[in-house]
């Protein structure tokens, strides 16, 4: 029987890899992908907890997370397209509108 800790460890590893991806990749699309990685790490943690606690609330949460992820991907990719049209680049380190 695989213990809860196994799944939590896997979730943590995926999350950490996702964090590294979000913070180090320069391409906006890849950053969005890395965010999906992080979300999947969280999802697996939630499902494992749901199993452990013996109720379905965790699964409900995951369903909503997937919903939000879909919305986020749609809006994020639309932004990517708009960005590419306007700036001719997808490198986030060339975009610093937030500066001051």
């Amino acid at each position: 029987m695989i213990s809860l800790q196994h799944y939590l460890a896997l979730g943590a590893i995926l999350f950490a890899i996702g964090v590294v991806g979000v913070l180090t990749r320069r391409n906006a699309i890849l950053i969005l992908m890395a965010i999906e990685l992080m979300l999947n790490g969280v999802n697996i943690t939630l499902i494992a907890f749901a199993r452990h606690a013996g109720n379905l609330t965790g699964q409900i949460f995951v369903l909503f997370i997937i919903t939000v992820a879909a919305a986020e991907a749609a809006v994020g990719l639309a932004l990517v397209i708009a960005l590419f049209r306007g700036r001719d680049t997808l490198n986030v380190d060339e975009i610093h509108l937030l500066k001051w």
Partner: peptide
């Protein structure tokens, strides 16, 4: 620290 690059701010969050 004040670069305007989102990733730097995300690093601060991390």
């Amino acid at each position: 620290l004040q670069t305007g690059f989102v990733q730097n701010y995300a690093l601060a969050m991390l």
